[in-house]
């Protein structure tokens, strides 16, 4: 869910001192260190470079610096959430105002009015407890939950999301 293999492009610079027989290895290494672990609004979290398209394109020498520019095409494993998508996650923080849910690298805020309708905040135990008699249902740190993303802010280097557990089939995964 939200995981994709996607074809991406990236130009990497290889400094003149690396212009030797292993230049291609160096270009790929540089690509991997530059993109792995980064976040972008458009492609989401780039988890891992899976494959670099070979043969590598011929490099262009940058006037002035003498560095080689490789326009690499590669396939990457990304985690890219979409608004409207239903995701499973794990509660990471519980507050009076709502809960934060970690869905892999993404943190989703679910406000107190969007937790399942029968749940109330319990001040003493710092968790949400179902008001239904005899129900063991509760939301506390480490509870696995299912939620729907209802909003997302995508900056160039960051994603932030808001979710709901207020409709059928969402909430604690028991």
């Amino acid at each position: 869910m939200g995981f994709f293999l996607v074809d991406l492009k990236r130009t990497v610079t290889v400094a003149p001192r690396h212009l030797h027989a292993k230049i291609h290895d160096h270009a790929i290494h540089r690509l991997v260190t530059l993109v792995e672990g980064t976040t972008s609004g458009q492609y989401g979290y780039i988890i891992s470079v899976v494959e670099v398209r070979r043969p590598l394109p011929p490099a262009v020498i940058q006037p002035g610096t003498g560095a080689a520019l490789f326009a690499l095409r590669y396939r990457a494993l990304v985690f890219r959430p979409f608004v409207g998508e239903v995701l499973d996650g794990v509660v990471s923080t519980v507050t009076r105002h709502g809960v934060f849910v970690a869905v892999g690298p993404l943190r989703v805020f679910v406000s107190a009015k969007n937790v399942p309708g029968d749940m109330e905040y319990d001040e003493s135990e710092q968790c949400y407890v179902s008001a239904v008699q005899g129900s063991e249902d509760r939301l506390e740190v480490n509870t696995p939950v299912r939620l729907r993303l209802v909003g997302m802010r995508r900056d160039a280097t960051e994603l932030a999301a808001v979710g709901t557990m207020h409709t059928d089939y969402l909430g604690s995964l028991g």
Partner: peptide, 21 residues
């Protein structure tokens, strides 16, 4: 973008570019 209506924006709509896993 709206996953409920299968709208995934310019990049992820293209099945030859992005493959859900």
């Amino acid at each position: 973008e709206n996953a409920e209506q299968l709208q995934f924006g310019p990049v992820f709509s293209d099945a030859s570019v992005a493959e859900p896993l």
